[in-house]
Nucleic acid binder design. Sequence first.
DNA 1: GGCTAGTGTGTAACCGGTAACACATTACAT
DNA 2: ATGTAATGTGTTACCGGTTACACACTAGCC
Lengths: 321, 321
Amino acid sequence: MVTIKDVAALSGLSTGTVSRVINGNGYVSAESRKKIEHAMAELNYHPNAMARALNHKQSKIIGLVIPDITNPFFPMLTRGVEDTASKYGYTVMLCNIDENSEAEKRYIDMFKRYYVEGIISAALPTVAEWDSIEVPIVMTDRSADLNYPTVAVDNVTAAKEMTEFLISKGATQIVHIAGSAGVNTALDRREGYKQAMEEAGLSFNIFESDFNSNEIKDKAGHFFDTHECPDALFCANDLIAAIFMKEALKRNIKIPEEMQIVGFDGILMSEMLSPPLTTMRQPIYEMGQIACETLIKKVESNIEVGDTILKATLQMGGTTL
Amino acid sequence: MVTIKDVAALSGLSTGTVSRVINGNGYVSAESRKKIEHAMAELNYHPNAMARALNHKQSKIIGLVIPDITNPFFPMLTRGVEDTASKYGYTVMLCNIDENSEAEKRYIDMFKRYYVEGIISAALPTVAEWDSIEVPIVMTDRSADLNYPTVAVDNVTAAKEMTEFLISKGATQIVHIAGSAGVNTALDRREGYKQAMEEAGLSFNIFESDFNSNEIKDKAGHFFDTHECPDALFCANDLIAAIFMKEALKRNIKIPEEMQIVGFDGILMSEMLSPPLTTMRQPIYEMGQIACETLIKKVESNIEVGDTILKATLQMGGTTL
DNA sequence: GGCTAGTGTGTAACCGGTAACACATTACAT
DNA sequence: ATGTAATGTGTTACCGGTTACACACTAGCC
């Protein structure tokens, strides 16, 4: 392992001067700088991030907490975070914590051990240990009722628009297939749906589902077994929509003629379905990007940043008239 | 920040003894141990991973290099790696490097700075800097021709089986829609297809596509514009299959009656399509898991491990007869 | 009783850097 | 010529741990 001492020795200067060259601060003569740069190149020297972190109490690591990377919403979010982190010289520690408070605690522990500088979370805190975290936290997509800055779309408004769109297409018995009850995005979408239905003078009808794909499969079968086929489904996300649509097609329900169906999110899969799904596209990559920038801003300058509300846009597919 | 000194002070013992308790080595009396554990709990002490890494030259971090997490194959792989790493007390540094040798170099640099203990890569090395990495590397899915241990399915055999399956279903003009030419998994699948066709006395026909979703879209349109519709397509992966199927359906080609279509991978999306895609399911999660275990074994015991060849299994969908 | 082995604990050097400080040299203004 | 500021470099304490070593104490044995 090549250390700063080796560089100092080879260049005939002290470690202090080498350190100044590395960090570009303090006074260093052009000649010394050249010698040192030469020595660094020759030895293929890379400053040890751990030693640096120990001094600065800064690790240049940020934690990204998500429920589950295999949920198709999160890869794009992760990518947005990672690209941005990387751009600013930070490294991302990926943490999947779905429904596992043990994992959650283990990661909180890791955050502390590694001097993680900030955390982006798209999962709701379920354990009290979160309170003991002293570094900045930014929420994205999902938000806790805590006072962490949040980057998300206005789910209520977007869901309302989506519902109004269905109404404009002539649907009257729109059923909302709701997401996990504990998740605020699910609640907001439910709320938007309700508002639109009430304003249109239609009676609303909510069927409880989940954001977990295994759960959804069970629910979907059960739904069609126990319900008359409505003229439209507004599903709380694309995954739910995909699975309900699959079930509907299996029962020879014509989409969109007999039943229209819409989702929410705009994940890659939604375009691949046939017919392609009409959905509310969230700017997922941008959410990750902005969440990461927000976090870094707070970490580096301690600037208190507010929430960022992004706009979801209706993406027409073939599942609506 | 609570340090070992605070714990030592509160417990009335020295930092050396505290360290012994933390690491469970050396002699510590039961009484002292109890005092120290008490103090650690009271102060909510977490040993600093950086300081430790500096001593041991071990960071407990592994790097995971993938082309692109938004490619639906990789989330499940990532999950397998991460769960396993976490189980063994390691942390995962996620690196998306698609087609960007700058990113690749930047990450190699990070690996060195962070004393990363080992690397799992599902992307082909494109820059020479890889040679300068001194820690163990395990390849998964894709493999370089280098002598890194690899965890993957036997793509040649699996592709051959898939092709034979299509032949058994009466297809004779099977076209292989090939993946990115530079990627060995793509080449292996192509090879398996050729073998099966030759053995059956059928002439093979390969259409060059790509593993990148934007590329595929262009190719798919072009394919149907310039080709007579064959009786079957064997696509190099599910994403290609999904996009070609979408294009075929748009042109009112009946699947599977007029044209059968199969994919490869077994990603979540494949089941959601209608009809659901017949595909070769790879044990993706297990690949990640095994790759991670292989790596950790090598890191911790320096045991030289060989390649692991897993089996892909045919998953019947509705796109074949 | 004196010797050895086993136990228990503190001290200090060290891991690889950083940065405050000291000191030397030079440049510039008066 | 001289005081002051700017520039350049080395030394050293320190970041938060680990661990080799020194030392003290106890127990067991001839």
